[in-house]
């Protein structure tokens, strides 16, 4: 879980690079998950977007021990539940309302938590890494293979230390432990 912890740390510390990579890597899964319960693709994508933004908004309170994916899926699930409740209240008696009732019952089942907890993180982390900007991955390689310090890397790429500090270093930090393979 160390790798995840550092990714959470990076987002918590405000790394937009890390957040964007996480968004790219996980958006489809969250939207897919929501859509399986609300059967409305557009709405599902909206809910997924909101969930990610809520994660970003509340990043100060992120629990580093908790899996980021759990966090975002839990928010998405609660929003999906609100949406389903709305359907039940407004369209009572219709087929859609019956379906909403069935799906809201499933979504409230503790098995959903268990299944979310059981999701593998390895593939997700690989996706997040591949979603990082080319430049960041290149810097990662320099750091790993050529043993360059962050300051040296910043100088080489002509970026300010501040940029390195708030964006790149944090994103790198997130994957230093996660992906020890220098081929990346």
């Amino acid at each position: 879980m160390n790798d995840l912890k550092t990714l959470t740390d990076a987002i918590r510390a405000g790394s937009e690079v890390a957040f964007e990579a996480f968004f790219r890597a996980e958006f489809s899964n969250v939207a897919f998950f929501v859509n399986r319960y609300i059967h409305d693709r557009c709405q599902a994508e909206d809910i997924a977007q909101e969930a990610f933004l809520a994660l970003w908004k509340h990043r100060d309170n992120l629990d580093t021990e908790r899996n980021l994916r759990n966090y975002v899926l839990t928010i998405a699930r609660n929003r999906a539940l609100n949406w389903l409740r709305d359907v039940i209240a407004r369209q009572g008696g219709t087929l859609e309302a019956h379906e909403a009732l069935i799906h809201s019952r499933i979504l409230q089942d503790p098995e959903v938590d268990q299944r979310i907890d059981a999701l593998e993180t390895e593939q997700m982390l690989a996706r997040v890494f591949n979603s990082l900007p080319e430049k960041v991955r290149e810097m990662f390689r320099l750091n790993r293979e050529e043993g360059m310090t962050y300051t040296e890397i910043a100088a080489k790429h002509g970026v300010s230390t501040k940029v390195v500090e708030y964006n790149i270093v944090l994103a790198l930090k997130a994957f230093r432990k996660a992906l020890p393979d220098p081929d990346f």
């Binding site: 489809s28 897919f32 299944r115």
Partner: peptide, 11 residues
Amino acid sequence: ETFREMEHEAL
């Protein structure tokens, strides 16, 4: 079925 398919490609 839902969780079996939870490894979608990145955007």
